[in-house]
Design a protein around this nucleic acid. Structure first.
Lengths: 244, 244
DNA sequence: CTCGGATCGATACACTGTATCGGAACATAC
DNA sequence: GTATGTTCCGATACAGTGTATCGATCCGAG
């Protein structure tokens, strides 16, 4: 038995096996890339060890040489997406709001490119890979380097609040996008109360405010501006509550 | 073929089958209750149609008379939790912050009682059952009835922002709780950088701010006050951005 | 009492993640 | 070059999943 006395060993603790002259050269990153490809194309349900292996012309068990379990593969996928995020465009110095805005948008863009990403984020015990750590570092540093934030505890609180909003909002967006795609009905159509179930519910009179909001006219703001509006509000709140 | 021309039929569209003199009387709510019991006790992985059925002394296929698919069962579980939420303690009138705070805490309490709840929230196409609708109604009404909010579009924006934060924060909390339970390490121990993986990462020097935050001393605020602090900030932001 | 139609649930199927372990492929020793 | 020791690959197997199918069964109508 190998020394696995550290019960909390992480993926990133183990080296890849040496690239021996295998049938076809495999690697952790090729496996992760294949898995991401499948997830992007056909959703998370399409990511099974068998399918990932098949995409690499390998038997299912081949993968266990590089990855200890499916959960570990999922962790690696998440960290890979963090790694894809473009670096901050320019050191934004004292303007922490601009920095956080940039961070939020880069994460959101990635989450839209990989819709499964947001599902995996909070679900598993959430171990922080190197790229996720780098992402956290960027968020923390954006505040810590400014004169507005002098207490590290406040920096932490601010980043937690920020992250909670961003992930929550992205999740809601992605959920709505999926619902639209699944039902074929844009939210606008729900709004006109054309869905029989919803109409019947509203007819009970138990949801007057929902009805009012849903049937009010005025063009729907798109997802971008909705996200932006909420983000602005949250940054305002953070400024008031935690800064200076 | 029955009339299912409405391709978007929901669970709540179909009546329960009449309670015929079956071996043991089954019902949608008994099934949902059993599923929730399993999920609470042993996590979401323990919720399989076979196990739920077994808990009710029935064969797996019995359930399909009451529920069209497992996904539908999950939808019903979610709505059931919404239904468990205690009603607002008192009509809080003009004080929308108090109302939203109350809503947030009731949801958070429920999510802690049923840790699986938050996982299911954003995942599926997220169809709104009667109880979820009632919850949405309460949130919207809390703002709409005040003088601070005159534009329904602002009410909508405010509620979306609020919900995004609350769900995101709960998800983060639950994820941390799970991680603690899985690794046996409280966050405090991570903070002392006692985990070898983390220590090695920090030793690279690439995460100076993370290191600073993690190793600073000062007692950890508990989850309650962290949630509350973030919530306060977000409500502040909402007041500034969308109210009056 | 007989028959027709509805309904229930045992069986079956395709698929999942992963433990096991026979055998092949490699490195070493002579 | 051969024999031996060792490692590691991956085919097979297993227990579990969600659900389609359809024969057996039971109920009510005539």
């Amino acid at each position: 038995m190998r020394d696995d006395s550290d019960g909390n060993e992480l993926v990133w603790d183990r080296p890849e096996p040496p690239t021996r002259p295998a049938p076809t050269a495999l690697s952790r990153s090729r496996i992760v890339a294949a898995a991401i490809g499948l997830a992007d194309a056909d959703g998370m349900d399409a990511v099974s060890l068998r399918k990932v292996a098949a995409a690499l012309d390998a038997g299912p068990m081949r993968l266990y040489g590089y990855v200890a379990s499916k959960d570990e593969l999922l962790d690696l996928m998440v960290d890979e997406v963090y790694g894809e995020l473009p670096p901050p465009s320019e050191p934004s110095g004292e303007d922490w709001r601009a920095a956080l805005r940039s961070i939020a948008h880069r994460l959101r863009d990635a989450a839209h490119r990989h819709e499964w990403f947001i599902d995996l984020l909070g679900g598993r015990p959430h171990v922080r890979g190197p790229n996720a750590l780098a992402f956290l570092e960027e968020s923390l540093a954006a505040l810590d380097r400014t004169a507005d934030f002098t207490d590290v505890a406040d920096v932490m609180r601010a980043v937690r609040t920020f992250t909670a909003y961003v992930t929550g909002a992205i999740r809601a967006e992605v959920g709505e996008a999926r619902a639209e795609r699944a039902t074929g009905l844009a939210l606008a159509q729900w709004q006109r109360a054309s869905v029989p179930y919803l109409r019947r519910m509203l007819a009970t009179g138990r949801y007057p405010t929902v009805e009012k909001v849903i049937t009010h006219d005025g063009e729907e703001p798109d997802a971008d501006t909705t996200f932006e509006a909420g983000l602005g509000a949250v940054l305002d709140g953070i400024a008031h509550a935690f800064a200076r």
